[in-house]
Every structure is written in C-alpha cells, then in structure tokens.
Design a protein around this nucleic acid. Structure first.
Length: 916
DNA sequence: CCGAATGAAAA
DNA sequence: TTTTCATTCGG
C-alpha cells in the first residue's frame, strides 16, 4: 500500500495535471528555498535564470511539483515580504473596521485604518513597529537570500511565464543552504526511501500547520523550557524570550552555532526562523507530534464516553475542564508520541510496522486508547521525524507540551489546517476559525491563494479527479452517515465550546463571498473554499439547530460507521471545497487504509476500541469540518482565560467590552491567512508563521471607539485639500452610474482621496466641517442613505451618530509635511499639482477638508451606537451645532459638482420615498 | 486585477 | 528620490 500510495501520489500528481502545483507551493516556501541551496535555483526556475539551464532539474522538479502549470504558483509563493507595521495594524483591525462599516469596501476600510493609524498612540504604534521589525528579522533569517523585490528589475524574470510578476520577483538566493531538502529533493529522495508520506511536502505542510496551531495553544513557554536545555546554553536572556526562541536556539545550536548572541536578541520569531532553517527536516514533524492530542480529540472521547450519559453537558463541562484534563491526556500522549517517534523511524520503513508498534505501546499504556488512535493517525500522517534529534526534542517538548494543548497534532494528521491560530490568543477574534483543509498531496501551496486561486481551481479539478477515486473507495457508503456525524460533532462542539461565537462566525464568512461567487467557488481560492465550507457548515448547523439535543447514540453510531468507512475522507469529499479535493490522494489513500485497518482491529478487540474509533472518526470529522478550528480557538481562549501566562496577550485589546464581543462574533476569522500555513512545507516556516501569528494576535487591538475619540481631537492628520476639480468630474460620473449607495461611497471616498495636502493655510476647521455638513445637507436623506447603504436593516439612528462624529474638524492640518507616501498618493490621484497649488493655497480646496469626518461617520454608523451611547448623545448635539454653523457651500461645490450633488440628493429622495 | 493605506527596501 | 510590494477584498 504504502509504496503504491506514494507512487500514487506522484502518479496522481502527474495525472492531476496540475494539481501538484499546490504542493509546489508548499515546497516553495522560502524556507525550502533556503534549503535547496544549490538546487534551489533550479527549483526556482521561475526566478529567472533557471530557465534553460535548469531545465534538467526542472524536469525532476516537475515530477513532484508541478509540471508546468503550477510553476507559476510555486514561484510566486515563495515568500511574501514581511508586513510593515501599518500592514500589521491593518490586518489586525481591518475586520473591526469592516464590522463597523459593513458596507465599506476595503479601500474605504483602509482609509479608516490609515486614520486610525495616524491617530494611534505612538506607543501603541511602536508595538506594531516592533512586531514588524521582529517579524522581518525573523523572516530574513529564515530566508537569507530573500530579496525584497527587485523593483524594476522584474523584467528579468519575465522569462518565466508565470503569472504575476510580483510573485516571482524575488528569489531567494539559496545561500543558506542549510539543509533542507528542497522539496524536490524530498521527492526524489524520499520517495524512494520510505514512505513518502513523510517525505511529502504536502504532508509536511499539514503537519507544520498543526504544529503551529499547537504551539499557539501551548504558548511558547513550554516548549522552550524543555528544549532549552539541550544545547543551548540557557542564557537567561533566552529564556526570558519566548519559548519559541529557546527552541529555536536549541535547534540552532545543535545544528549551527550561529551567532548565539543575535539569536538571543532575536525574538521568538527570529529563533523560529533559525530553527527552521537549521533543522529543516525535523522541525516540521516534531511540533506536530507534540501537540498530539487536541482538545478536540478529548472532546470526541468525551462524546463517545458520554454515550450513555448526557452528551451535552458532559461535553461542555469537560471541554472546559479539558485544560486540566488535557494535560493528563497530553502526558499520556507524550508517551505515545515518544513511541511514535520511535515508530516513525521504523515507520518510514514501514508504516504498518509502526502501526503495530504503536499499538503495542498503547497497550502498555493501556490508559489511553486515544493515544492509540492518535498514533495511528500519526503513522498515517507520518511524521517526518527522520532525525533522531528531532525525536529527542520532541520528547522534551512533549513533556512540556503535555501541559499545553496539543490539539493540532491530530489536525495535522488529518491535514486540516486551522486558520484561527492567530486569533486564538485573543479572545476576540474569530469565532470561527478558518480552517483550511489541505490535502496532503495538494497542499503545498502556502501561498496565498489569491492569485493562485485560479490555478488551484484547476489543480483541484485535477486533484479531485485523483482524489475522488480514493474517496470513493471507502467513503461512499458512509457519506450520509458522515454528514450526520459531522452534524453531531458540530453540535457537540458548539455545545461545549461553541458557545456563542461558533454559530455566528461561520455565518459571517458565509455571507459575502460564498454567495456571490457560487459558481466560482470551485475555482476560487482556498479561502473561498473555506468559506463555502463554512457555509455548508452553517447550513447544517442551522438545520440542525438541535444538534445538542441529539442523542449521543447517534453520534457514536455515526462515528463507528465512519471508522469503518473512513468517514474523514468521505467528509472531505463531500465538502466541496476544492482544497480538500486536492488533497492528497496519496495521503488520504495511504493513511486511510491504515487507519481503517487499525480501527478494525480495535473494534475487534473490544468495545472500547470501537469507541476510540468513534472518537477518531469524530475527530476527523471535526477536522474536516473545521469544527476543530473553532474548538481550538475556544479552547485556547479558555486556556488563556484560565491562566495562561503566555506572553502577551496583554492586548488589552478592546478596551470596551462590547467590542470584544462583537469582534469575536464577527467575521474576523476569515482572514487568518491560513494560506500562509499552507506553506507549511517547512516547519520552520510554519513555526515562524505560527510565532508570527501569536505575536500578531497578541498585538493590541483597539476598539473603534477609542479611535473615534482620538479622532476627535486629532481629526485628521493629513488633510487633504481638495482638488476638486478633478473630483467633481469623477464624482459626477460615478454617481450616475452607480446606485446611490455607491455614489455616496464614491463621493466620500473621492473626497477623501483628495486629502492629500495639508497645507491649506486655513484650516478652518469650522469651514471644513461645514462643508461636510453642507454636503450632508445636500443629501438630506443622508440618514436614509446610510441606512440603505449599509443595510436596509440598519437603523437610522446610527446615522445620527455618524453625523455627530465629524465635528472635529480642525486643526490639524496646517501643513503637515507631505510624506513621501502622500506625495505618491497625490501623484496617483493626479492631484499633485493641485496639491501644490494648495500649498500655495491656491487650491480652492482651502476650506474643504474633511474626508475624515465622513469616514468617521460611516465608521460610526454600524456599531457605534451599541458601543458608545454617550458618544452618540454628545455627537448629536454637536452635529446639530455644526450644521447650523456651516454655511459654506463653495467648498463643497469644489469637491463635488453641483450636478453630482443634485443627483445624489435626488436619488436619495427617491429612494427614501420609495422605501417609505 | 485595481485600488487605498503606510512603510521598508531596492534601484 | 522613486518604485515595489506587502495585506485585504469589494468592485
């Protein structure tokens, strides 16, 4: 089987036609690139040079990765340049902004974010800056050769047919060469040797993902402690740093003695990077193992156990308690894991053998059946632990980890990735984590899918083809069952953790993306897929409203069935998500069979086993469904709350309670970027990513309210003068075409755009404000508009708030020096000259300004009302004042053409009437 | 695929 | 100094 499987993968890939590509991506991870070293170039082919010379190599690569098609992907992905502080901030707060202003498009959100950023307390800003720097350092370390992007050079790369220029642009020099086997290598080498499973980058990726998650859960500390000791001198410094850091050091020390000092200084991220680089191979696998048991797993067990008992309550309780309980499990898990480790070695040679061993070991332990399952899972997954070192580390880690949460390992095995990771820390976020399911085979591409999406689609199709086969084998019969199972699982999950958020989150995601592009779904990138999946989930949930109520028995049954039938696959198959499809034929195929066997054995042995199997099934289902993610998130949350000491969550995130809630509930989840995780191929990378996520999550999030407040005082840094001239035309144009909403938004946005220069000598805040108001007045119906725009549902009162906000016009403007970026903007907008004139004061804009206010308005609309009533009141009053005060139309006119205004007004009126 | 934001890096 | 590109995702 194994051998065949492996082959299968490859063959499949070939068959798939492009499927592989994904994998490639994974392979492509920067880390990999590093590893590649010499070869890297070849692989990178894309980069440019590769071209001809490498052809030979390419051929080889092609095998694995993609052949031709995928190329594009692979190169692209490489590594994205690290985000700067502002981007981090945006990433962290965009969801919030969107919550407030659902209607607002990203551009608008970005503007708001920029405003926030501007007003952000320097000290807070510094946090982001530091984080960005840290991440960058880590990133660079991990990808020594990484070139930011050859600005103009690009052309060079042109040779590669690939797609977006951007991707290719930078290539990593392979200098470091550490060891990582390049993906290709892995292919070639690994394949022959062992199980490929292990070798497969794709799998790796999954594992890495898992690891990441696990790490998050753990909180770095644990790991570090264990690992530290080894080589690294445990300098206090290191310890202080995050566990990750220590871990990294250890790894680094072992492999490389690089400058320890630097490392020390470096943040956890940095360390990770090092580690990853050093231990190219190992890394990935280990982490996964550690985390072996996840809360989910426990849940599953619980569920099973509870058969007789009331599932719901027990589950919930347990889940909550799980922290404590988990530890035990974890410990057990450790042992098992250790065993696994050993096994793994052998396993390579033969999975089956491993399996048996694990079983034996399990027997020893007798305690944990689950472990057994896990082991199986692992086996299937195969960790890559080739290096003994890793094993050791793992052991150490395990010990430490035990205390932590090991959720992911399972997931890893299952291949599912959870997006949430990042958020986990913060309570806030995402309710539903995003799970990405990757196929073992396919996964590879960590990249962002965005671009790849299309490709992926293609791939998927190919993969699907391949996968279906596998899936079909086992799963067909069980699908219905599977669904039920899933359903049950979900219910359980909800019951336990689910709590409030779970339900909500999924929906959100669902909301936009899915519906809109249903057709596309397939093709769409993983993200979308995920969403779609979520939708499905949500649907199921909704339909099942009673999930909790369901009888436990049902679950068990389903689980059992699944086991036999290998639900997981089925599940995967069911879900439309392409990603899943992509998966991996190889993995799934291999793993499943084994698993199934195991299950069978177990079953034969005794009822318990069956339970286990059930659990396993549940777990799988959870994973497949993504429930795991959510669960994980919840668990994490719980942990945190209970007492984590992790680093910093300080976050403080939302000052305001309401906020937190909202967020959590809201959509934030989606983004997570799971995509990154995909890259997985390298642990290091994964770790890095993970670490990054952690840190990212730990970054403080600020509630909009705060910004609003701040805004008031600091209304706008940059003001923009107007250059209305250009604007008016546009506005006029756009509006006609677009609907009112659009119009309004456009106008506003444009208005803002203009902002550019601060110079206007007269800031006359009042004037500006007045302008705004004028504008509003023009549009009397503003309220209506707002309501409509946002959501018909939205209450008008929101509008009020919005209005109120704008008040603070002022001052600020004076001339703030244009920043380079501003200049750029100006240029882009074409306003530049206008701006200059502005400096001179020439620009008519003089008085106008304020884009901000509007933004604020918009911003405030959605949620402000909830969060801050007081503000509203004040705002209202203010607003009233402002109105009275403002008389200056001219400015307005400058911004908007009369015609445009008239139109807007008319539209609004019409609209109002119509609505009313 | 563009855009809107900011910032870091590269040319 | 200017250009790229990082993230996000609606249009």
């Amino acid at each position: 089987m194994k051998g065949s499987n492996r082959n299968k993968d490859h063959s499949a890939d070939g068959e798939g036609a492009g499927k592989r590509p994904k994998r490639k991506c994974l392979q492509w991870h920067p880390l990999l690139a590093k590893k590649l070293l010499d070869f890297s170039e070849e692989e990178e082919e894309e980069d440019e040079e590769e071209d001809i010379d490498k052809v030979q190599l390419l051929g080889a690569d092609g095998l694995e990765q993609d052949v031709g098609e995928t190329d594009d992907e692979s190169p692209e992905q490489r590594a994205r340049r690290p985000m700067n502080a502002f981007l981090l901030f945006c990433k962290r707060h965009r969801s919030l902004v969107r919550q407030e202003h659902p209607r607002l498009d990203n551009r608008g959100a970005t503007k708001i974010l920029a405003d926030w950023w501007a007003v952000l307390d320097p000290k807070e800003k510094q946090k982001y800056t530091d984080m960005a720097k840290e991440y960058k350092d880590a990133f660079m370390k991990a990808n020594p050769g990484y070139k930011w992007c050859p600005t103009t050079n690009k052309p060079v790369k042109s040779p590669t047919p690939t797609v977006n220029p951007r991707k290719k642009l930078w290539a990593f020099p392979s200098e470091s060469s550490r060891d990582l086997p390049s993906p290709k290598k892995a292919k070639t080498e690994e394949m022959p040797q062992l199980n490929f499973g292990m070798a497969d980058p794709t799998q790796m990726g999954g594992l890495s993902m898992l690891l990441l998650a696990g790490e998050h859960a753990l909180g770095t500390s644990e790991i570090s402690s264990g690992s530290c000791r080894q080589d690294v001198s445990e300098s206090p410094e290191l310890r202080q740093k995050s566990p990750l850091f220590q871990f990294a050091e250890i790894s680094s020390s072992t492999s490389h003695p690089d400058a320890s000092s630097k490392q020390c200084q470096a943040s956890a991220l940095f360390q990770f990077a090092e580690i990853s680089s050093n231990t190219s191979q190992l890394g990935g696998a280990e982490p996964v193992k550690r985390y072996g048991k996840s809360a989910l797993f426990q849940l599953a067990e619980m569920c099973l156990a509870s058969e007789g008992v009331k599932m719901e309550e027990s589950k919930l309780m347990k889940a909550k308690e799980s922290d404590g309980g988990r530890i035990k499990d974890l410990e057990k898990g450790k042992e098992q894991r250790e065993i696994k480790m050993e096994k793994t070695d052998e396993a390579r040679s033969q999975k089956e053998a491993e399996f048996e061993k694990s079983a034996k070991e399990n027997v020893r332990d007798s305690k944990e059946l689950r472990n057994f399952e896990e082991l199986r899972m692992d086996d299937t997954m195969d960790i890559k632990m080739e290096d003994p070192k890793e094993i050791k580390k793992e052991e150490l880690e395990e010990d430490q980890k035990c205390s932590h949460f090991p959720d992911f390992s399972y997931s890893a095995s299952s291949k599912i990735i959870i997006s949430d990771v990042p958020s986990r820390k913060d309570h806030m976020c995402h309710p539903h984590g995003i799970m990405i399911i990757e196929d073992p085979t396919a996964l590879n591409k960590p990249e962002k899918l965005k671009k790849k999406k299309k490709k992926n689609k293609m791939d998927r199709h190919g993969n699907d083809k391949s996968t279906p086969k596998k899936t079909c084998k086992k799963r067909q019969s069980s699908e219905s069952d599977i669904e039920s199972v899933i359903y049950t699982i979900e219910a359980v999950a909800k019951g336990d953790w689910g709590i409030e958020k779970l339900g909500e989150t999924p929906r959100k995601k669902v909301r936009t993306s899915s519906s809109g592009k249903g057709s596309i779904l397939d093709a769409k990138p993983p993200k979308k897929k995920v969403k779609s999946r979520e939708k499905k989930m949500s649907k199921e949930k909704s339909s099942d409203t009673t999930k909790e109520s369901r009888p436990p028995d049902f679950i068990n049954i389903s689980a059992s069935k699944n086991i036999s039938g290998e639900v997981p696959e089925g599940i995967k198959a069911e879900p439309l998500t392409p990603t899943e499809d992509a998966l991996p034929p190889s993995l799934s195929g291999q793993a499943k069979p084994e698993e199934s066997d195991c299950h069978r054995k177990i079953e034969t042995c005794g009822s318990r086993k069956s339970e286990r199997s059930c659990k396993g099934a549940l777990y799988k289902t959870l994973v497949s469904e993504g429930m795991l993610t959510s669960l994980r998130a919840n668990v994490d949350r719980g942990k945190r709350s209970s007492g984590k000491g992790n680093s910093s969550d300080h976050e403080g995130c939302w000052n305001e309670e309401s906020w937190t809630f909202n967020q959590s509930g809201t959509s934030g989840s989606k983004k997570f970027k799971k995509t990154k995780p995909k890259e997985d191929s390298l642990l290091g990378s994964a770790k890095l990513d993970e670490e990054f996520e952690k840190k990212f999550n730990s970054l403080p999030q600020y509630s909009p309210v705060t910004f609003d407040r701040k805004c008031v005082p600091v209304p706008r840094k940059k003001k923009k003068t107007g250059n209305m001239a250009s604007e008016p035309t546009k506005t006029s144009k756009g509006p006609f075409q677009s609907q009112k909403k659009n119009l309004f938004h456009k106008i506003v946005s444009k208005y803002k755009h203009k902002k550019e220069k601060p110079n206007v000598p007269e800031k006359g805040s009042g004037d500006k404000w007045s302008n705004k108001q004028l504008f509003l007045d023009a549009i009397h119906p503003t309220e209506a508009i707002f309501s409509e725009d946002k959501n018909t549902t939205e209450p008008a009162h929101k509008v009020k708030n919005a209005l109120s906000i704008p008040n603070t016009p002022e001052p600020t403007t004076t001339q703030e020096p244009l920043v380079g970026s501003q200049k750029r903007k100006a240029r882009k907008t074409k306003i530049t000259h206008l701006v200059r004139t502005a400096d001179g004061r020439v620009s008519p804009a003089g008085g106008t300004l304020d884009d901000k206010p509007k933004e604020q308005l918009q911003r405030s609309l959605p949620k402000v009302t909830e969060s801050g009533c007081s503000d509203d009141c004040s705002h209202n009053t203010e607003a009233a004042e402002t109105r009275s005060s403002t008389p200056e139309m001219p400015a307005v006119s400058a911004f908007f053409s009369l015609a445009a205004l008239a139109e807007v007004a008319a539209m609004e009126n019409v609209h109002r009437q119509g609505s009313q």
